[in-house]
Simulated scan of single mutants.
Amino acid sequence: MADSPVPSFDRAASEAAVRALLRGLGQDPDAPELEDTPSRVAEFWAERLAGYGVDLGAELKPLPGDLSPVPVILERIPFVSTCEHHLAPFEGHATIGYLPGEGGTVGLSKLVRVVQAYAWRLQVQERMAQQIADALQTHLRPAAWGVDLVAVHTCMAHRGVKTPGVPVRTTLMGGIWRTDPPAPFRG
């Protein structure tokens, strides 16, 4: 799985950019109500983009012991991500799962971390779904896998067509689930 490199975070440059943006928007970044804004925004983005630093190979290590190969499906994992086109948030939920194969079984929290790792990056929903699917395939080598993301995009709600509340669904299936998905992946 080709993962994105970890970008370096330059707090001073980030704060300077926010100050410049505020000036560009006709605001005074030195006004009492805005003086801490550059620092707060820089910290917000450092948190928001923390997914680049996650080592998914380390996260998706199989559990020890001989576990039954039963389907593992987590439904409605909440996520918030950032549209790379507008730097606007999109949020929704993910349903991801797999039927263990030669790669074994991982702890349930590890699946949540996969969703978070890709959500906490500049993203588009379609790529995020593919990245999650690729991580499952690469690290778990399952007999079957599924990824279903449903999200509402503020870039669509607040600009352009200005249509709030329209969910976007992206679904990918593989292995034996490609033709016969379990109920949580049937929409």
Results as ranks from 00 to 15, higher is better:
L60P: 13
L60H: 12
L60Y: 11
K61E: 12
P64L: 07
P64N: 09
G65K: 11
G65Y: 08
G65L: 08
D66C: 05
D66E: 15
D66N: 15
L67H: 15
S68F: 01
P69V: 01
P69Y: 03
V70C: 03
V70Y: 13
V72F: 07
I73S: 01
I73T: 10
I73L: 04
L74C: 03
L74I: 15
L74P: 04
I77H: 02
P78W: 05
P78H: 04
V80A: 15
E84F: 13
E84L: 06
H85V: 11
H85N: 03
H86Y: 13
H86Q: 02
H86T: 13
L87D: 02
L87S: 07
A88C: 14
P89T: 12
F90N: 02
E91Q: 14
E91R: 14
G92I: 00
G92Y: 09
G92S: 05
H93W: 10
H93G: 12
H93I: 09
A94M: 02
T95I: 13
T95Y: 06
T95Q: 12
I96T: 14
G97K: 04
G97Q: 10
Y98A: 00
L99W: 03
P100M: 04
G101T: 02
G104K: 09
G104L: 04
G104S: 06
T105E: 01
T105Q: 14
T105N: 02
V106D: 05
V106F: 13
G107I: 09
L108W: 10
L108M: 14
S109L: 12
S109W: 06
S109K: 06
K110D: 08
L111F: 02
L111K: 04
L111P: 08
V112G: 14
R113M: 03
V114M: 10
V114P: 14
Q116M: 03
A117W: 01
A117M: 05
Y118A: 00
Y118M: 07
Y118K: 11
W120S: 15
R121W: 05
L122E: 06
L122V: 14
V124H: 02
E126W: 03
E126I: 12
R127S: 09
M128C: 09
A129E: 08
A129P: 10
Q130Y: 00
Q130A: 15
Q130R: 11
Q131M: 11
I132C: 07
I132K: 04
A133T: 02
D134F: 04
D134W: 03
D134Y: 10
A135S: 15
A135H: 01
L136G: 11
L136E: 07
L136S: 07
Q137P: 00
T138Q: 10
T138I: 00
H139C: 02
H139M: 00
L140T: 01
L140F: 07
P142H: 06
A143G: 11
A143T: 10
W145Y: 15
W145G: 04
G146A: 04
G146N: 02
G146I: 05
G146C: 00
V147W: 01
V147G: 15
